[in-house]
Design a binder for these strands. Structure first.
Lengths: 378, 378
DNA sequence: ATGAAAGCGCTAACAA
DNA sequence: TTGTTAGCGCTTTCAT
């Protein structure tokens, strides 16, 4: 192309850089060696600047002339340069990745939480290294160590257990920021983000009392997580405060299978309560399924409530009344807390965030004719 | 401790190493500098050997004396040494991590697949870097690039689209092994692991024909994935082969919401078919929910079938007849294929694995009185 | 069998 | 503003 008459400032700068290109000692390695991925030195050579200038431009650190900036950016684009994040991580001591462990990914509630966390992490350009603990605190500890060894910049953990998960978290927290999500261990010096479980259970109890329930049974996991502990305590206290008949809680695991077994336990015990309060939706789904199998109608014969509000709570028959956990806001809070620690913006004492859940009333708790809760009449 | 009379070979080796410790120039950095994580040089110093010997012992590469080996192992344990995987990755050119993208983690089928993949990866000591494409092939492409840039050793992708996902995969496949899982793009030179969709649909059709169905409607996603394409073709062909009445397929997205809308479409069209065949369980769940809302009984008024066999297929009312996809085996095959490529054991032409699904018959397809399929009478 | 030394590809002092 | 230099923590020739 013939040179135009008009030469802008930018064009002149580019020319200067082009000329200098041969005088600089940065040169790309011979192209004959197979498929070596393009690296910073190639970009620098192509742009006619030094490696450090290229680095500065691409990382946005340090000042540089607009000409150099444009030349580097153009060269990078032309060569479709992709920085080697491993090399960058080794030098800059940050991988721009965070680790996350979950008890079981197959529990949709956790899967939805992971998805939400991933979305928020993207805003800070963090990638997610995920580990499934498969219900075992030993596996969890192993994976947490592995993640730390991988130099993730931070860790979001949904602990499998309240006591056994504590040690690995404490150790990890000595090298990188850690946030406990949804459940908390005994580690009072580690950030925690969850919901107000006491409020959640009380929302359920108020609702059931309004509907005239006086006999209520509680089905939950064994007291291994902080959530099962608080939910049980809230339930026991709540039942007493409201002058309802106390019952032995039925404790096992947060699985559908256990929900089914719980129904068998209740039937073996004789009297059917007015309502069955479950501390997890997957349990409630099992309860409803088994009740149906045994020919017991919900909500006519017994009302059932869940906890979490997973997608399928709305789809089961009857649709499940449950405590909705705001996953987006949980994920947002967890990621914000973590990023605050990683960036060093937050050096304060451990954060403890408890988001308020809300009750979603569906048919599983509404005995026909659909009773208008008395509180609404006040 | 006073020296014992008996000095074993091992003891003598240790002594020698201890003595040499002061004469070697490997020394740990002064412990006064905050909380520097223990690194290889510390282990080497503690064991009284050189860094390279320590490295050889810990990576298991290269021979070394049993004495040195024990000394290093003991030192590593004593200091609870955790190798810096970033440094190792930069030098050894392998991160021992693989990347995976899914269309939506909130779809339990994908979540279960991810869980299974994670389990199998653990056997090879690979960690999982997960990315949620959120249904967008642009996001998917971005994340794939990021994963490659992160130098994962391989990629397992559940593509969001058949055509649009192809380019990013092809490019990634130029630098690292890629396996397409569950859906395939047009890339014929990339390994693929999925199920036999044609068989799956024919299993459903045979079952429905046995039950006397002659009018069947198909609900699926738009033809953006290879699975939706094959399932639709298998359905159309199958309907014709069996001399059933052809109907316009109802195409949208693999979501519960779309399943509900599909029912509205069917009702608007007038006649209710004998059966509604869905290409995904989440769609089928939506269909069943909407039918119930509209006062239409399943399976009395219309039978419904799904595809995938997610956990909730069994829990909905009525429980859903569906095509079971063997997630474990899918994950196993995908991981095996990928590891084979990464290790270089498999340099052959692209693999194409199609696992056979099977039909799980539940109540949603059984009109009372429960008909014994005629094929069972033969 | 072992140690010295050379990088992996990048960022960050420091000097010019 | 820019280039030169020195590593990040490890693995891996290459001598010894």
């Amino acid at each position: 192309m013939a040179p135009l008459v008009c030469t802008s400032v930018f064009d002149r700068t580019s020319e200067r850089l082009q000329r200098r290109r041969s005088s600089t000692n940065i040169k790309a390695v011979s192209p004959g060696d197979g498929h070596r991925p393009v690296q910073l030195r190639d970009v620098a050579a192509e742009a006619g600047v030094s490696i450090s200038t290229a680095s500065r431009v691409l990382t946005g650190s340090g000042r540089c002339s607009p000409g150099a900036k444009n030349a580097v950016l153009a060269a990078a684009k032309r060569l479709s340069y992709q920085p080697n994040k491993i090399a960058r991580a080794l030098r800059a001591k940050t991988t721009r990745s965070i680790g996350m462990t979950v008890p079981w990914l197959r529990n949709p509630f956790y899967a939805e939480l992971v998805e939400a966390v991933d979305v928020f992490l993207q805003r800070f350009e963090f990638d997610l290294v995920l580990a499934d603990a498969r219900g075992s605190w030993q596996d969890e500890a192993r994976r947490v160590h592995s993640l730390v060894s991988r130099r993730v910049d931070g860790l979001i953990v949904i602990p499998t257990q309240q006591t056994n998960s504590a040690e690995a978290l404490a150790e990890a927290n000595r090298s990188i920021p850690v946030v406990q999500l949804e459940y908390e261990t005994g580690n009072l010096d580690i950030d925690y983000v969850g919901i107000d479980n006491t409020l959640g259970i009380n929302l359920v109890l108020d609702h059931l009392v309004d509907l005239g329930a006086s006999s209520v049974r509680f089905v939950s996991s064994a007291i291994i997580s902080s959530a099962s502990r608080s939910r049980l305590k809230a339930f026991s206290d709540g039942v007493e405060e409201r002058g309802m008949r106390p019952h032995e809680p039925i404790l096992g695991r947060f699985t559908t299978k256990f929900g089914k077994e719980a129904v068998t336990t209740i039937l073996a015990g004789g009297a059917m309560p007015d309502a069955i309060v479950c501390a997890s939706d997957v349990v409630a789904l099992g309860v409803i399924g088994q009740l149906r199998a045994d020919g017991i109608s919900v909500p006519e014969d017994v009302m059932v409530t869940g906890f979490d509000d997973i997608v399928f709570a709305e789809l089961c028959d009857p649709p499940l009344t449950t405590v909705h956990q705001p996953r987006r806001r949980l994920a947002d809070a967890a990621v914000s807390a973590l990023v605050g620690r990683i960036s060093g913006e937050n050096r304060g004492p451990p954060t403890r965030v408890e988001l308020p859940p809300h009750l979603v009333v569906r048919r599983s708790s509404l005995r026909p004719p659909h009773v208008v809760p008395s509180s609404n009449l006040a």
